[in-house]
Every structure is written in structure tokens, then in C-alpha cells.
Design a protein around this nucleic acid. Structure first.
Lengths: 371, 371
DNA sequence: TTGTAGGCGTTATCAT
DNA sequence: ATGATAACGCCTACAA
């Protein structure tokens, strides 16, 4: 035990007092106690109408009293259905992911399913291993959230004989079932909001390059710019990695520009956190000097200073949808392949009307104004 | 499908092209292909020395090629070990919990264990249900994090024949194995830090009343006050519920005091978030007017404005410890019951030297000063 | 309405 | 070094 840890010397008394671990009663034990055959017990416990009401009652009472719990593993062996699903995430320790996971778990539970959680840690090797372990565990279905290595092991996934759903997939393949947010529309909404506030120099602080959702959000940003007749300025596009640290550096770059932006659309709320920090460290204020917008509407977005304007993703609901959809596929129903859910612009206080340009700058602009 | 959701009409092509779901090869299929008996296949796949190196090699190749994956459910049935553990959390969608979960999952995975995640949503009924489902699934062990309903179903837990570990338990029973943070020392450290900054009116913004960790942190706060010879003022103790909303209201109460505090020790970072928001809404500044400290050192603590002074809990490490400990119990080793892990004070910018009292107030104080 | 027999896919225990 | 056989605990025929 290392030195950051202390173990008390106290020993645990075995609950129940006995050292011997008695093993769980089996269906046969119950049958013996109830003086019936074990199939009868099985039927009684499943409320089959084929069993006499009184004996059924008696059996259930005995089962209850002896703390009998039918073994899901034995049942799974014979029914070839485990009523479990495998859930692969890049990391649970991420506010977005954990909301989705929560929605999935809740729904699964409501339908009698248990979920195996596997954290791939964005490591392809690990991701492969966990998917294999899911295969061995004979899960009835698999959900993968915001996988970045999807392309790598998608063939492997499809080799498995179970339905698979991707949530916010980053490498959409044609045949894959998925639940996604309307990235384009969401990003377009924020950018339009910013343009409506009079901003003309609007930056896009993206995710690592090459991912689907980043591409779509960027497209939304471009679309909004076009609609507002704002000329696209390539130097206003920078990339982070979806986390605050990298976003800070990206924002630093923007602020070092000769003509820095007056507003920034961030790939997500985490990036916005980093952007705001960078801005403050440069002695500027949000939103007075620069407006900042995020994406996701994480729980904390309402508690940043200033509270963050962002695009809400119904994360928990997306998890729920993914699970419900998976349940359908498991029960053999065909259904839509791509489920898209609506996003919603949430305006808080991190975005504001653009400051009037400095007198000199205004002069300079005058000549160029088109309308 | 409700109207926030769109389903594309595109249909998924079955991966592999075939509609029929072929079922997975069993060990007997492999045996047939390799012209050996199935036990031999079993041995070969487990690298048993009892099997001829060449045949073993051949068997493994065949298994590999046919995509054979041994069924963990069948194995579990005969070995009476599922190599799964059950993990109960009140909600995964909480930055503290999800870090712990991540640590647990990682460690479990490294040891060939899979984890069933169950979100009780702080609902005792639900919590009961998931624990029962764990029993049916024949998990080898159970970990429960920061349960608030522990007392309710602890008897039920101990009825199960598997080892159980509690992480940051709120109702410590004598016999329970647990991993906990040094709450008292941590809280004492922040409060001492605040006193060292010259604060005399230090408030404690706690969790809901009646929980173990809250009580311990409060005790730490008291101890620090005593050590600094600050008289305890009951009106400076308020309660939230560990979340920002309630903390805001609690902070409102403190600010309404005739003589409000100059510093606040919050039960956790989430509460600190709410406290800071309340303070800003009152037109005051952190830390110039009031110092605020949290507890946990969530990821976001470094990105609040100002960055939050707090007490770090090694959350992921705690998860790891819990899992390692559980593994020991599973393998029959006796070991320490209570594992305590050290916390660490992280000083950032939300705490500062106390403002000098107003001249008049200073006057008034003068007479009372003891030393 | 109930009981008997068989099998799900493994591992374990014997023989050989 | 390998194979036959019997569990593990349940469910599903089918028979009674």
C-alpha cells in the first residue's frame, strides 16, 4: 500500500457471523422444499398460468424466504439471451458522455437489461479488447458513444452477431445505426445569433481536425456566415481537441491576430471554458470584448462566469433513444438507421452586441461598407 | 417517435449481407474442425501444458479463423465465477462519481473483469432492484459509491454472498469495507488556509444535513476554527444539497446576514459554483469581497472564474483502490476494512487575504480584540 | 396441472 | 496427451 493510503487494522466481521460461504439455493433446492419438481418452480416464478394458483403462491413464498434468485447466467445459457448490453465509451469521466450513459442505463434498466460499461480510454487496443469481452459475454447488443476510433474496429463490430448503435459517431458508415445531434443546424444557430449581434469577425474554434461532428459544426458556421453575407476569413479558424487546455492555446492564437475576432464559436462547452480562460488571461472581458459560445449545454454552462451561451444537446434523451432503438433491433424489428435529434440555442450572458469599432477603425471601415 | 427526433428512411444493410444470423460456433464446432475432443480445445485455448504444442497451435488457429469466442456465460455457470462486478452509483452524470467509475472500470478491465453499471438515481426502490439484478447476474463482488440510502439496503447487501466495498459511504457500518477520503483533514486544511489569510468570519456551506462526509468536513472546519482561536458562529453554518442550485440559496442566506462572512468553505466544488454565482448576483466579487473554497477538485475547478481553491480528492485513484481491494476480497484474502486516502489542498485564486474592515467596523472591533 | 428428460456451452474429473 | 462423461442451473419440450 503506498503512502497516500492508510489501512485501518480493524478487521471486518463476516456479515451473518459465519465464515463459511453457503452457496445460493438453486431451483432444485426450492423444488425440494416445496415438494414439487423444479420445472414447476420455474413456471411459478414466471407467473405461468399453467401452474395451480395455490402451489404457485406457496412456491413463491418459499423462494422469497430462502432468498432464492434465479441465475441469469444459467438462464442466458439456455435462452441464448442475456438481457445485457455492452456500452463502449471513450471515457466516462466526461460530462457529455456520462449524461448519455445515464440515459442509456436508465432505459436499459427499465426494460430489465443490465449494462456492461467499458471505458476504452480512447485507446484502440483497449477498445478492441472490450468489444471482444462483450462478444464473450454474449451481450444482446452494443452501443458505442462518440468513438474516435470507430473506423478502426467497425469491421470487427459488424462481425459480431448483435445489433450495434453509434451515438454521435465520428466516422459514419452507410450501414450503421446511429443517433446524432443536428450539428449543422445547431452551429448555424449560434453563428447566426452572433451575426445578429452585429459581429462580423466571428471565429470558429474547432475540435481536432478530421471528425464528423466538427466538420458538420464548421459547415453550420460557414452557412451562417454566408447567410449574413460575412466574408469567410480562414485565419479565424483554429483547432483544439475538445478540451479546455488545447482550446486555450487555440484562443491564444486568435488573440495574437493583427485583427482578432470579436466573437468565437467553440466546438463544445469544454473548449469554451478554455477560450474564456485564455481571454481573461489576456486581460480582456467576456462578453464586453469578445463573445464566446459553446456547444452541448453541459450542466456547468449555467454556472460559468459569465454563464455560457451554447447549443443544447439533449444528452440523456439521446442515450434513451439509442437504447430504445437498440431494444427494437434486438427484438428483430427493422427501423430507421439514422436518428437525428434537434438541438436548441440557449442564449446566456457570454454573448453580447459587438462593441463599436474604435474611431479610427470605423473610419477605415466606412469606405468598404456595402449597404 | 416524438417531434424532436427525425428518423431517416434509409434502411441498414445487414453487415455481411446475409439476413440470417448464423449463430456463434461453439467449442464443439471447433473440436470437430480440429478433429479433437472439446475438452482438448478448452485446454488448448487456456494454454494448458497438458496439450501437445502442435495440436494446441492448430486448434488456436482454427478457433481464431472461425471467430470463435468462448462463452463467458457457460464458463460462469460451471466455474461459479463470472468475473463481473456490480457497480452502484447514485448517478453517473456527476463529475465526481464518473471519475471514480472510470478508475474502477479501468482496474477491473485490467484484471479481466467486466463491470455492470447501475444508476440508482438516488431512488431506494431502484437501488434495491439493481442490487437484486446483480444477485441474479451472479456478480463476484459489488462496489457502491457515495450511497445516500446505504442504511436502507445494507442488510440486503450483506445478505448477498459476495464481498462489497463502499466508496465514500455516508452511513458507515462497522463491518463494511470502504474507501474514504480524509474529510476532516481536508476541510481543516482549507479552513486553516482561510484563517491564515486573516479571515475571522468563515462560513461553512454544507451538504444536506445528516451525512457522514458532511459531518466530517464540518468537524474539520470546527477544528481549524478552534486552532485559530476563532469563535464559532452558528449563523455562519448553512446547508445546501451538494449541488449549485441549493448552494446559491444557502449563500443568499449568508449574504443576508447583518454581518456576512468574508470567506466560505463549501462542502464540494459544485456547491462552490453555486456560492460564487450567488455572490456575483449580489454584486460582490470573489475573492476581493468574499473568498470561496470548494472540495473535490473536479476538472472544472481549474476553469472557473476565478479558478477555485479546493481540496483534491484522488477520485480515479479511489476507484482503483476500491477495485483492487475488491479483487483481494474476491480471491479470499482478508484485508484492511477501512481504507483512507489523503486529500490535498489546492490553492488557486478564489481565496485571498481578507479585506481590511471598514474604519468604523475596525473601531468597533478594537475593544473586543483579545490578543 | 405436473413431472421427466434433454440440452444450452463450458470446465472438471476421471479414465485411457 | 487425449477422450468420455458428468456436472453447473435453468428452460422447454413432451409425456403423464
Amino acid at each position: 500500500m503506498s503512502d497516500d493510503v492508510t489501512g485501518e487494522v480493524t478487521r471486518a466481521a463476516r456479515p451473518g457471523g459465519s465464515k463459511r460461504v453457503l452457496h445460493q439455493p438453486s431451483i432444485k433446492d426450492i423444488a425440494k422444499l416445496a415438494r414439487v419438481s423444479h420445472p414447476t418452480v420455474s413456471r411459478a416464478l414466471q407467473y405461468s398460468p399453467l401452474v395451480n394458483a395455490k402451489t404457485a403462491e406457496k412456491i413463491r413464498k418459499i423462494a422469497e424466504e430462502s432468498g432464492y434468485r434465479a441465475s441469469a447466467v444459467a438462464r442466458g445459457l439456455v435462452t441464448r439471451q442475456t438481457r445485457t448490453i455492452g456500452l463502449v465509451v471513450t471515457t466516462v469521466a466526461d460530462p457529455f458522455t456520462s449524461e448519455v450513459v445515464s440515459g442509456i442505463e436508465q432505459t436499459a434498466n427499465d426494460h430489465g437489461y443490465s449494462v456492461f460499461l467499458a471505458d476504452s480510454n480512447a485507446d484502440p487496443e483497449r477498445e478492441k479488447r472490450v468489444v471482444q469481452s462483450f462478444a464473450e459475454r454474449r451481450v444482446d447488443g452494443i452501443i458505442v458513444t462518440s468513438s474516435r476510433v470507430g473506423a478502426l474496429y467497425l469491421p470487427m463490430l459488424s462481425q459480431m452477431r448483435v445489433p450495434i448503435i453509434l451515438v454521435n459517431d465520428q466516422h459514419p458508415g452507410a450501414f450503421v445505426h446511429s443517433v446524432m445531434i443536428c450539428n449543422l443546424e445547431g452551429a448555424q444557430a449560434v453563428a447566426t445569433h452572433l451575426a445578429g449581434l452585429g459581429h462580423r469577425r466571428i471565429a470558429y474554434l474547432g475540435d481536432e481536425f478530421g471528425y464528423q461532428s466538427d466538420a458538420e459544426r464548421f459547415a453550420g458556421y460557414r452557412a451562417a456566415l454566408d447567410a449574413a453575407r460575412i466574408r469567410f476569413a480562414p485565419e479565424l479558424v483554429v483547432h483544439g481537441d475538445g478540451k479546455p487546455e488545447a482550446a486555450m492555446r487555440a484562443m491564444d492564437t486568435l488573440l495574437a491576430l493583427r485583427n482578432p475576432p470579436t466573437a468565437v464559436c467553440c466546438y463544445n462547452d469544454m473548449s469554451a471554458l478554455g477560450a474564456m480562460r485564455s481571454i481573461r488571461l489576456h486581460g480582456l472581458r467576456v462578453p464586453e470584448d469578445i463573445s464566446v459560445a459553446g456547444f452541448d449545454d453541459l450542466f456547468i454552462a449555467a454556472y460559468t462566469q459569465p454563464p455560457l451561451t451554447t447549443v443544447r444537446q439533449p444528452m440523456r434523451r439521446m442515450g434513451q433513444l439509442a437504447m430504445e432503438h437498440l431494444l427494437m433491433l434486438i427484438s428483430g424489428e427493422e427501423s430507421a438507421v439514422k436518428i437525428k435529434v434537434q438541438s436548441e440555442l440557449i442564449v446566456r450572458e457570454s454573448t453580447a452586441r459587438v462593441k463599436l469599432p474604435e474611431p479610427r477603425a470605423r473610419q477605415a471601415l466606412k469606405g468598404k461598407r456595402k449597404q
